[in-house]
């Protein structure tokens, strides 16, 4: 069985851009399971259900879960691995010799689930988690600039964290939305506008709702994708 694990932010990106509907079809094409963990479920559904502003978005996510498109994963190995990774992640960056808590439970639980399930990828929009897995030196440099103080990496904690996460591939909601576009799932929204308008619309929507995609990437994508004959482009 194949698995694609989602963190909170990537589902929020889809919800805020009215793209949740595409997950059912994407899951069928993926030929496996779409997974969230209990901590992610709490952040996605339970927390906003106690507020007014994003309650309806939470209900929309709940519908997708109840339909079986997304499964909430529970496993007794998850807790210990999550705590282990969380303590290492939050010991890896030091400012004034003080370890900084840079990530929280939900993000790391999603990462742990990806490891246990040997997931195809973790879908995460959030910059800090991605950098911790892929390029912690860049994260430390960024934090040093912003905090006006040297942020050092604890190589022991970081090394151990990276040895456990080295096989994890990360994609963003951007890539997933592009797959939905390439499979023609967004074609009903074309109307009389050119394909470039559709791509521009959903990419900017994702960006303005918090996905870390640059303007340069958006422009490049528009140029690449609209050069191809149809929306069902390169797959």
């Amino acid at each position: 069985m194949k698995y694609l694990v989602f963190d909170t932010g990537s589902i929020i990106s889809f919800a805020m851009n009215n793209l949740l509907f595409s997950l059912k079809d994407l899951k069928t094409r993926f030929g496996g399971e779409f997974i969230i963990t209990e901590a992610v479920h709490q952040e996605l559904v339970e927390h906003p259900m106690q507020t007014k502003r994003f309650k309806f978005e939470a209900l929309q996510v709940l519908k997708v879960i109840k339909e079986g498109t997304i499964t909430v994963y529970k496993n007794e190995q998850l807790g210990p691995l999550t705590q282990d990774l969380l303590s290492k992640a939050n010991a890896s960056c030091l400012a004034h010799h003080h370890p900084m808590q840079i990530v929280s439970l939900g993000e790391i639980e999603a990462l742990a689930a990806t490891i246990i399930l040997k997931g195809e990828a973790l879908v995460v929009d959030e910059r800090t988690t991605r950098l911790l897995v892929e390029d912690p030196a860049a994260l430390a440099l960024h934090m040093s600039k912003k905090l006006h103080t040297t942020v050092k990496l604890d190589q022991a904690a970081l090394g151990s964290f990276r040895s456990q996460t080295k096989d994890v591939k990360i994609i963003r909601s951007t890539e997933l939305a592009l797959i939905a576009y390439e499979k023609g799932l967004l074609d009903p929204f074309l109307g009389d506008y050119p394909r470039s308008t559709l791509i521009e619309a959903f990419l900017w929507g994702l960006k303005l709702n918090g996905c870390a995609i640059s303007e340069e990437e958006i422009l490049r994508l528009i140029a690449t994708e609209t050069a191809l004959p149809t929306g069902k482009s390169t797959s």
Partner: peptide, 27 residues
């Protein structure tokens, strides 16, 4: 968040939801 802390951790620290913070971060 801009200092490098994750959105989830920043939201938790301020006692707000990720939904609220993400919509602000994006803009």
């Amino acid at each position: 968040f801009d200092h490098g802390i994750s959105i989830a951790q920043a939201a938790s620290l301020l006692g707000i939801s990720q939904w609220e913070l993400r919509s602000y971060v994006g803009s």
